[in-house]
Write a protein that binds this DNA or RNA. Sequence first.
DNA 1: GGTTAGGCTTCG
Length: 736
Amino acid sequence: MQIRVVDAAANAGPQVPAHLQRIFIPQLTLSSICTHKFVKGKVIQKCPLVDLDKDNYILKTVIQEHKPQHDVPPGLTDINVIFFGKLAKEFLETVQQEDVVVLTGFTIGRSPTAIKDGLHSCYLQLAGGEAHVYSLSPSVIVTVNPKPKYTYTPLKDLKPGMIVNIYGVVTFFKQPFRTKGTDYCSTLKITDESSVKIGCSVFSEKVEEHPKVFKNGDIIRLHRVKVQFFNGSVNVVTSLGFSVLTFDGSVGTPIVPCTSSRNFHFSEQDKQTVERLRQWATNQALLAAPSTVQLAHVQPSMYFDLTCQLLAKAKMDGSCTLLKVWDGTRCAHPLLNVFVKPEALEGSVNVASGTDLVANVLVYDNHVEVAQELKPGTFLRIYNLHAILQTTSTTPSHLCFHLHGGTSYGRGLRVLPKDSLDLQQLHRTLELVTTSCEEALDDPVDIWSTPPESLSVICPFSPAAVRTCDHTLEQVPLSNVKSCTPPRLFHVRAQVRSFQPRRLYQALKLRCPHCRALFDIPDDEALASVFQKAIRGVRFGSLSWAATGFLDSSETGRKIAIHLPNWDKEELIFLEGATLEEVCCISKNLSNIVPVRSCGESMVPMDLSVPFLFQGKKRHYGSGRTPILGIQPLQYALLMKMELEDESGSLETLLWDDAEKFFQVTAADVAVSQELQNKIQWTMNRLCPPGSTIAERPWLELCIAVYTVEEGGRSTVCYQVLNTESTGPHVTPAQE
DNA sequence: GGTTAGGCTTCG
């Protein structure tokens, strides 16, 4: 690793190796090739140095491309650059803010903070012997790579009696719990490339010395553990002087060791090990089934992990504490509100503006100790939370959440660091919901209480939906629309009396662009069972037209076949013998996955009830037989019914051809974006707030088409909302 | 000097 000086007064060119080519920051993408390239820019920010160990540091900086115009957004020109090891410290000490530097030997990753800081979507990482910095500052520093100090034993080579250092990918974990002895204990199961699974018990009196594991797939490094033999298998226990580091297991995220210990060793070799294990684990489908579920998808009786923010808490009694939490999504079931006196409640649920976003979590027994230490505002993950439907004879059933006593299935809770990658989705959802709540509160009170009789008065506020057409038609009462002879077009002013479906994900449909036939989207449970059935009878044959390879599945002995066709230009990958979870996991890394089953020498799509193509999170469904792979691709579409009302009466309308316009989304984006699903939910809640009277609902200005549909010899008159957009916050889906 | 736990749903 090196920092070299370049004479500021002279032309920098000759001293930077001539074979290097400049790549401009705005042109950098995740797939940019970095070898023999350099980036040149001004240092506009240096963060405090993170001191990990002797000669081992991390430094975050921001480097800016020369801006030809002032209106170029920082998302193009300003990029996060992270330095590792000795280079980090030297950069901090040698290079000043405003200095111009030339960077080479970097790698590119997806910036996890791009949404938060508005900077470039990538970040540069400078580590290892390849990394060089050419600086305009006045000293030269040359550094050397530290030699590895520790050796790590593969899990397959552990023998009872050894004291070893090990690395592993976490496949099961319990948060620290009190033992009958003097210590807390963390129980883990880990694995590595040998696929051997090893149990670990970490003992320490101090909770903060325990491994900070947040999810399966995290990577753990243990120093000085003792190998034992118990109940027929090998496991490890911490011994005197043990230490532990953990890392996020996701490929492409920055490798930052997680520990509360100030003094630990972390080298280039560690980084490579973490990278290797991440890569291996991704292909093992270890992370196939994420256990975290948003409130919007919780079903009664479910056990699940909840990532949430604590709004308020209250001690119920010695063995029970109430936590009021939210994740910004709305549960499909009514939520129980556990009432406590305001003076007994620490924190406030006001931000959630209403109770249908707030989940009441009753925390019992051994978990009370952790719960009592929590401060409102904290971000949490609650493991193995139980959703319980509470029914009484007098009230309708409500969902309540219990964190039962004990530690079975990893039951427990843990605070997540505010900048955790696992919180990105939550931050985005909460930001959106909070803005919506604030806007709703900011609306003048008379929006919600305008009596219908004041209609003739010109309203001083903007309607909740507006026409975007340029017809000069006069506005008419709904009764005129109802009594007309189709086809006709009208402008109306109305309120929403009711809408369907109430579960908005049911509004998302599949439509055949040829025959306009409509299909429901199958749920994951139904899809999973089709895949499962196909696995049972699988018999891999050899194919003359494709190269076939095999992956180990999550089940011992079961293989997944990957067929790469010789003829293919579109890079389609045919997958056989995989579960739905495995297909989803594999498609995270490889695009264009086609699940198939063999039929002699040929491949056939699995079944038209499952997607014929997975592209990342996107799923493509088909019907019948035509263009692609003999399948007619279906389009995503939105369909809703709205019952409108004005002083003259009511009218059943459809939101269909212009539904995407109405919500300012595309149905295909909605299918893969929780944020956009929230946006639709938010819009409908604004048009028709739950529990509101008609007088409290906002007015909409709509364009309505009246037309007839002939079916089975009968003609029906239909009404559709066209050329209309709802008003409210505009959101674009996160870049996938 | 080296126990404790050694996954595998509460029952409110």
